[in-house]
């Protein structure tokens, strides 16, 4: 799941307008941002799921540090604390929660590969409801998150522009349209395997 995370961040912006959108987008991807260097150095790995039928959601991801439950909590706390220094307590809490929302959404789609403890210490049962086994369902969920998030953002951006006199109405429309285009483009790229 990639586009769904962006959709959620856009929806949160509508409810927490004082938090910068770019920071919300970074927060929602934070676990994956940290994952990339660990993947490139071989610390965390990806293998193809034997039951996968296409490129979308076809992976079993061994992200035992960044995507373990406790790892996600630690990374989210770090993001929230750093954000708090720039934008205050409320934004810090919001951005920390958005960072952790990544793990919650991943829990829905991953094929039971999310450990509980960092490094999968103790080899406790791994988590994941496995919606990726049903690509039409998980892709629809992502689509709804993108459409819902872009719509909520557009409503809030329009209202903000109107309250300020309406001069920024076109910018509000453009911003919402870009979220929609990037979100749908990301989903299309993910479905085609371009982002794998």
């Amino acid at each position: 799941m990639i586009a769904g995370h962006f959709g959620l961040a856009a929806g949160v912006k509508a409810k927490e307008p004082a938090v910068p959108l770019w920071a919300l987008m970074l927060a929602t991807s934070w676990l994956d941002v940290v994952f990339v260097p660990l993947f490139l150095t071989g610390v965390e790995t990806i293998e193809k799921a034997p039951d996968a039928t296409g490129p979308y959601g076809a992976d079993i991801i061994h992200a035992n540090y960044t995507h373990s439950l406790f790892g996600a909590i630690v990374l989210s706390l770090v993001f929230g604390f750093v954000a708090r220094r720039f934008w205050g307590d409320r934004a810090g809490v919001v951005l920390g929660l958005v960072a952790f929302s990544h793990w919650v959404l991943d829990l829905l789609v991953h094929r039971g590969d999310l450990p509980i403890l960092i490094g999968n210490v103790g080899h406790l049962p791994t988590l994941g409801f496995g919606l990726w086994r049903y690509p039409a369902v998980s892709a629809t969920l992502e689509l709804l998150l993108v459409l819902g998030g872009a719509w909520l953002y557009w409503r809030a951006a329009r209202a903000t522009a109107e309250a300020a006199g309406g001069a920024q109405r076109a910018r509000a429309d453009l911003s919402a349209a870009l979220i929609l285009i990037f979100g749908l483009g990301t989903l299309a790229a993910d479905l085609s395997g371009f982002l794998s």
Binding site: V33, A91, Q168
Partner: peptide
Amino acid sequence: MAYLIELFLFIVVVGIVDAGLPWPRPEKRQ
């Protein structure tokens, strides 16, 4: 890597356009 490029573009392009809107400012740190 394509994912990171996608994320970077998303943050920069959408972030710049969004930042020009008259959103309320975050609370100030004391």
